[in-house]
Design a protein around this nucleic acid. Structure first.
Length: 556
RNA sequence: GCCCCCGUAGCUCAGUGGAUAGAGCGCAGGCCUCCGAAGCCUGAAGCAGCGGUUCGAGUCCGCUCGGGGGUACCA
């Protein structure tokens, strides 16, 4: 893997700091200071900038500009660096060598679909667990946001060398299943002609439950018509669950998400792993039995209250089972790290989980990415979603109306920290000018340029990229070189939405370039060079869209 | 009450403690004898408020106001 341009600058500036420190006797403060490299917003300030001089001003008791000058004149000017200057109030501005930039076009094209990858996570096993929608109903837009976020995160980790497993956790146990089963049974009996039955207040009156009941009746007929909803609940819950899980799988396929495993909560009970985990916690001294229940002594680990793992009825809590689930993944399945993508409503749960991981000595190996909710608007008015009553927007419907690309893009364009507003009517109306098409159009346009070139017998192979000397050309290269840096940032910070912003920026830069610069023209050598350049742009757009799970069309 | 996330242009959203805060949609205007006008160019328009830290704050801290979520022997 090639070092990023940022790494190159970082190393050079660090060498300059050390050289200046040795020459001027600055000592430890200078040697220990971390060199931060950023990209100036203003082009006049060069390609990269370091603020180290301003950070050293106080400890060294010298004017920042003086420090900057001392460092700047000692930064080795080689390996792609053209110049290093000090600028008020104390920035060190680094400019890349145009000839080196031009050569990167050839490097990028030769890397092909390896461009942007890194090996930071080589040999490490990751699991990303996401969506994991409740199996008592279809996947709604509420669960949907975790899909693209988790999927793209998994893509980026794999892009960084990790062995990544995408997992879907199925909560196929608990009291809600009982209630669900009873609701299905009521509908089943009603379809058989029985009257006077009621769906309980905490039940599921939604229409899809009728669909489930009808499917059951199609399969078994009236064989259970003489039983009560209570008697039928357990087996009906199980049967309906299997159907709903198939719905979920189909929805995920439609959303272009390929899970490696679907893990059932009940497996932890059946295997005895749940009790094994309780014993592990007990041995570590974190368990207390009180009022007939088994508690995790969270307070001793900094929480306000303790948490119940097993109720006084002997039934494990959701939290307790989830702790076992996490331990099983990290300890028994040999994963180095588990990343959960959860909705904001679980933040209390996430906090308790963190405590439990600490109790098990697994802290640091589990990370949660919380995403804020999607608010639903109907004709501009806020709508409360209620799954049980069937008042919700199905993810399937959204995908069917706006398309997978636009749907994924929508969920990926905003930071996970931010509440998203979603208006289906607006989404439909805007699907034709969705920003995703702006990016895809850039890719299709380049494909079209290649078709034109082919008609004229022009190929990009053998191009002399040294002919790329214009600012317009080199600015594109600068933007391409940001891609590997972005991959590293997303890998470390999990802020996957940055890829949509990058895609828009690169597409915009290309569209502007295209307008002002002819690629296939009269000058054959220059045409070949520019063809090579836009080939690198198309490749980078493909890499970006590929990570986002969005298609990169040749024409549209 | 306490805890978490958010408040940036009319709307939907970007923005790593840096040097003149961006995009899409919408709005006003301009650009196709020339590789795709799903495009390009120009313009109007913005950091909720108050204090603090810092050489430097949309970004960090505190408070106020506003929105969302949590706070169970629910999941």
């Amino acid at each position: 893997m090639t070092a990023t341009a940022r790494d190159l600058v970082h190393d050079a500036v660090t060498a300059g700091v050390l050289a200046a420190s040795d020459a001027l006797g600055w000592g430890d403060p200078a040697r220990a200071a971390a060199v931060e490299i950023e990209r100036p917003a203003e082009k006049a300030h060069g390609d990269y900038a370091a603020n180290i001089a301003m950070r050293l001003a106080k400890p060294l008791r010298r004017p920042p500009l003086e420090i900057a000058k001392a460092i700047a004149e000692r930064v080795p000017v080689r390996d792609g660096i053209a110049s290093v200057d000090a600028a008020p109030p104390g920035f060190i501005n680094v400019r890349l060598d145009p000839a080196w930039l031009a050569r990167q076009v050839e490097v990028i094209v030769s890397e092909g679909d390896r461009f942007g990858r890194n090996d930071a996570l080589n040999g490490r096993r990751f699991q990303v667990e996401f969506v994991s929608a409740n199996p008592t109903g279809p996947v709604t837009v509420a669960n949907a946001r975790g899909g693209p976020i988790g999927d793209v995160l998994a893509n980026v980790l794999a892009f960084s060398g990790a062995d990544v497993q995408r997992e879907y956790y199925i909560n196929d146990a608990g009291t809600q299943l009982d209630v669900f089963g009873r609701s299905v049974a009521v509908r089943y009996l009603e379809l058989g002609g029985k009257t006077g039955l009621v769906i309980p207040d905490d039940g599921y009156p939604a229409d899809y439950v009728v669909d489930l009941a009808r499917a059951l009746r199609d399969k078994v007929g009236g064989a259970f018509d003489d039983q009560t909803p209570e008697e039928l609940a357990p087996q009906f819950a199980r049967a309906a669950l299997d159907t709903v899980i198939e719905w979920h799988k189909a929805t995920m396929r439609k959303f272009r998400i390929a899970f490696d495993s679907f893990y059932r909560e009940t497996a932890l009970m059946e295997s005895g792993y749940f009790m094994k985990t309780i014993e592990a916690l007990r041995e570590a001294g974190h368990i207390e039995e009180r009022d007939g229940a088994v508690w995790l002594k969270s307070r001793e680990l900094g929480e306000d209250i303790d948490s119940v793992l097993i109720r006084s009825t002997g039934v494990p809590t959701y939290f307790g089972v989830d702790v076992a689930y996490h331990r099983e993944a990290l300890v028994d399945r040999g994963l180095d790290r588990k990343i959960d993508v959860w909705g904001a409503n679980t933040h209390g749960h996430a906090r308790r989980m963190k405590t439990a991981m600490t109790a098990l000595g697994l802290e640091g190996r589990w990370v949660v990415v919380l995403y804020q909710f999607v608010r639903f608007l109907h004709e501009g008015v806020l709508v409360n979603m209620a799954r049980r009553r069937g008042q919700f927007i199905r993810l399937d419907d959204v995908i069917d109306t706006v398309g997978v690309d636009a749907a994924r893009w929508f969920f990926l364009m905003a930071s996970a920290d931010r509440t998203l507003d979603f208006d289906l009517e607006l989404a439909v109306q805007q699907s034709n000018d969705n920003p995703v098409y702006y990016v895809q159009y850039a890719h299709a346009r380049i494909a079209s340029i290649f078709r034109t070139a082919a008609e004229r017998g022009l190929r990009s192979e053998g191009a002399d990229v040294a002919l790329l000397t214009d600012d317009a050309e080199l600015d594109l290269v600068r933007l391409l070189l940001r891609f590997p840096e972005l991959v590293e940032e997303v890998r470390d910070k999990h802020n996957v939405h940055l890829f949509t912003g990058y895609g828009l920026e690169l597409a915009g830069a290309f569209h502007g370039f295209y307008k002002g610069n002819r690629v296939v023209g009269d000058d054959e050598a220059r045409s070949k060079a520019r063809l090579r350049l836009v080939e690198a742009v198309a490749l980078t757009l493909r890499q970006t869209l590929g990570l986002l799970g969005v298609s990169a069309p040749e024409s549209m």
